[in-house]
Design a protein around this nucleic acid. Structure first.
Lengths: 196, 196
DNA sequence: CCTACCGATCGGTAGG
DNA sequence: CCTACCGATCGGTAGG
């Protein structure tokens, strides 16, 4: 049994913040999770809130990297949209605790930190909006589409995945992405090309 | 300046729980919100957690009533779906604090209460699933539609409304409902009947 | 990473 | 609805 690294502390904090919330997690509980005293955590970190910021920024970086990779990909808007969605799903499934903390606990940050996190969120949202607008320009999506509103609704679907999706359930990751894309592009009433 | 009623306490609790979370709200703060001491709250309630349950159950009842009214309405699936969505929007916009507390703070309830709230949530979700399945039966929605999955995605959109929608913004309530219905039925690529 | 501890605050009760 | 409290717990520091 070796000592804990700072990364261990951040990972354990993500687990507890995701499960019980920031205010619902005490430093003593976090210490217990790592097999040490709450006070010992302060040799790794400077404050509880700085720890929250670490967790949240880790998630923000992952989402950033995913969006950057999608936007750097060649292809039409539909293909790029699928990569954007698949990247989001990967982040949520592979880094569930950080993603949840990012989505639900950012409000507990102080004003300056929260502002920076919201900026990340806005930039991420703009990536979606851009690809949606490209799709309209390409004549691939409805010309009367509002990319801002559509982006919000697509992201609403993506940001709720952590509330219901189980990677070990009947729907594998790729099928999840396909379902979302199909729902978003064809809708409830849409007639898929093959069926028309 | 008259005394506070129990309903006042529940309403104020909804405000603070929605804004700062259950664990982020102290009884002394709640008292301050109402112009009295934290300890005085206990003449209205029995515990902080019972207060959370009051707020959450109020929201659950509103959602229940909305779904019941929609399902009691005559008409085809598309019409019933619109009523279901409009009812949800009404609850969220008119009872924002309770809706937020319902969505984000139910996990802080004890096991038995949380279980009951989740049952409410499941029943509500089934109402959506039922109307979606009706639409498939009527030949109005895609025959390959998975009503369970589509219900989750529609509800994901609805449950995120409180995170971005401002009733005093450019989009009024009815336009919001229309946008959601259009997004969900026609999708990004769907060709509206008139444009085909 | 530990023990020992700090002042502040927590939910809640007693007794008016 | 108030004052006066209760024991427990909070985030964090000092000093090894």
């Amino acid at each position: 049994m070796s000592r804990n690294s700072r990364a261990d502390v951040v990972a354990a904090a993500g687990r507890l913040f995701a499960r019980n919330g920031y205010h619902g997690t005490s430093m003593r509980e976090l210490g217990r999770e790592l097999g040490l005293r709450g006070s010992s955590l302060y040799s790794h970190i400077t404050s509880k809130e700085a720890l929250l910021l670490d967790v949240v920024e880790r998630a923000a970086q992952l989402f950033d990297a995913s969006a950057a990779a999608a936007l750097a990909t060649e292809g039409n808007a539909e293909r790029r949209l699928r990569i954007l969605v698949a990247g989001h799903v990967d982040v949520v499934v592979d880094h569930l605790d950080e993603a949840r903390t990012f989505l639900n606990e950012a409000r507990s940050l102080d004003d300056a930190s929260r502002r920076r996190v919201l900026d990340h969120r806005d930039r991420y949202e703009r990536s979606f909006r851009r690809v949606l607008a490209e799709g309209v320009d390409e004549g691939r999506f409805r010309s009367d589409l509002d990319p801002a509103l559509a982006g919000i609704m697509l992201l609403s679907i993506l940001n709720a995945i952590d509330r219901w999706y189980r990677p070990d359930g009947p729907l594998d990751r790729d099928a999840l992405v396909t379902s979302i894309i199909s729902f978003v592009i064809d809708g409830l009433g849409g007639r898929p090309v093959a069926a028309n």
